[in-house]
């Protein structure tokens, strides 16, 4: 085997980010070319913001050959919604928002406890939105390093007419020749950034100088300590008797449902400082911040089987 010795690297270094970027662009273009009616799921979170930049790289100078779709739990941080709307408007792309409230009004979602996390109900509204617009492919910003069920999921993940994922019966995925064929009523979820890690995302945000919601950066926030977690105080979460709210310097590693997304203590005020913190953290991204994933060892797999992305 040849090892690197005075390797002549003239002008071009193809970094790992270049490799990941090119792979993701290739995936998005396959979706655009082969699927009849695709959509890109866009929440205003950092991973979906990276997806937007990748879509710009894949399709400019043309417009995106698909709309952006957000399934709004109405439990989102206001800063994230502001960012979502600003980015969609700046890009001049079409943004479709469907809310869990629509499904609640229709009676297809029955909320037992209005203060509880709403992520489990997102699948219902997502499937209704897919049916409303007849989407045959939905691209999402999920990554394999996030969660162990996702580590086993294909880049092109096939769903039956009930939107269900069958992990034991996945299509083999060879080379980068993707099988996008579905029967009417079925659809696929496509994950162009499957192979990116949390660190890659932050390095890309820094490299591309991407605008993301400010709550990803350290800020003073009123929080409550519950067990090992730090819970943000909001109109949905107030201190229980015996608990005391305090001000802490925190940032969010993920931004989901306000009632179940915990920030981490941090002083990182820009992407570079977050990269340094990410390099030394000893807790996974979802482990630190998603209380709903900790309910059981297979929370994510069960949600996916029900149609979650």
């Amino acid at each position: 085997m040849k090892l690197v010795e005075d390797h002549n690297m003239s002008s071009h270094i193809f970094t790992h980010l270049d490799a990941l970027e090119s792979e993701s662009i290739h995936i998005m273009r396959e979706v655009a070319a082969e699927c009849k009616n695709p959509a890109l799921l866009f929440s205003g979170g950092k991973d979906s913001i990276v997806m937007l930049r990748l879509a710009e790289k894949a399709f400019r100078p043309a417009r995106f050959p698909f709309p952006l779709v957000h399934i709004d739990t109405e439990h989102n941080f206001p800063e994230v919604i502001t960012c979502r709307d600003k980015l969609a408007a700046d890009l001049g792309e079409r943004l479709i928002v469907r809310s869990l409230e629509d499904s609640i009004r229709r009676g297809t979602i029955v909320i037992k406890d209005p203060d509880k996390p709403r992520n489990p109900y997102q699948s219902v509204t997502l499937l209704e939105t897919i049916a409303e617009f007849g989407f045959d492919a939905c691209m999402g910003g999920a990554r394999r390093d996030e969660e162990k069920a996702r580590a086993k999921e294909r880049i092109f993940s096939f769903r039956d007419e009930f939107g269900q994922w069958d992990p034991k019966n996945q299509r083999p995925e060879l080379w980068d020749v993707y099988n996008t064929r579905v029967h009417a009523g079925e659809n696929i979820r496509v994950f162009p950034i499957s192979n990116w890690t949390e660190m890659d995302i932050w390095e890309y945000i820094a490299r591309e100088n991407l605008y993301i919601p400010e709550i990803y950066y350290a800020h003073e926030r009123e929080v409550i300590r519950r067990g090992n977690s730090v819970i943000p105080v909001s109109h949905l979460v107030q201190p229980k008797p015996g608990e005391k709210a305090e001000m802490l310097s925190v940032r969010f590693r993920t931004v989901g449902d306000m009632t179940c997304t915990a920030p981490v203590e941090s002083t990182a005020r820009n992407a570079q400082e977050i990269i340094e913190e990410t390099a030394t953290t000893r807790i996974t991204e979802r482990g630190a911040t998603r209380m709903d994933d900790q309910t059981s060892e297979a929370s994510m797999e069960l949600r996916k089987k029900e149609g979650y992305f």
Partner: peptide, 19 residues
């Protein structure tokens, strides 16, 4: 071993990717 059936049965069903 990320899947429920794998952990229940102590087997590996499918290719898993690690980074």
């Amino acid at each position: 071993d990320g899947l429920l059936a794998e952990r229940e049965q102590g087997i590996t069903i499918d290719v898993a990717y690690r980074y």
